[in-house]
Design a protein around this nucleic acid. Sequence first.
DNA 1: ATGGTGGCGGTGCCA
Length: 262
Amino acid sequence: MKIATWNVNSVRKRTGNLVSWLERTKPDVVVLQELKAQEPQFPKLEIEATGYKVEMVGQKAFNGVALLTPHPVEITARSLPDSVDDEPARYIEGRISTPSGPLTVGGIYLPNGNPIGTEKFAYKIAWMERLARRARDLLAKEEMFVLGGDYNVCPTDVDVFSPKLFANDALCQPESRRAFRTLLNLGLTDAIRAFHADGPQYTYWDYQAGAWQKDNGLRIDHLLLSPQAADRLTAVGIDKGERGKGEPSDHVPVWCELDVGG
DNA sequence: ATGGTGGCGGTGCCA
């Protein structure tokens, strides 16, 4: 069972890349972020032609998340706890069946939070607390789940090409990192770090200043696994090649494999 | 060199 996350930075601009990636890598579930589209603008026909069903929470111009899978899926949430009306489209969650029991996949687009010292940063931290609340509720079920997405957090300085340059960035603040560690301390496993304990494992390279060519990257896209999912983790990967293609997203897909038997 | 790139929407906002 292959679970992936990808911030596509506009699903309309990325339709071609997305379709060829789906056909080549065949994930069982993929969560997408930054659709920058409402439901009528989503390239549903092109995606469905690949055999994937589309569940999404859309928004005009900004944010937007989707869950794609060829399997039967039950959508279990379209927002985090304590949501308000007209909340930014940043969370979707679905549940599929496997031979080892149900698997829940949450797709998250965590607020960027810049600049620090503003309401935007406070909103980021509050959003992370709501995510932790959802994680606790899911953990209580003692089932497999994966919370994948663009967390907009570099968990440690190893995850930043230049810690000095990002010292005042919301992605690297102690509060952001503490809230991320809270998720880990609940018992969640950072899938990439389970297989690559040290060293840079970037998932994002800015469009500006030749960041890709200079490998000036960040690790901000993560897959956090419940203990029941982590017990079955067999492989992880970062599809870095997507960043070198024509008209790329600034993020690349991150995936993991779970051995669920059958 | 106080810039640079990209997406949306039709001007500045967001990342």
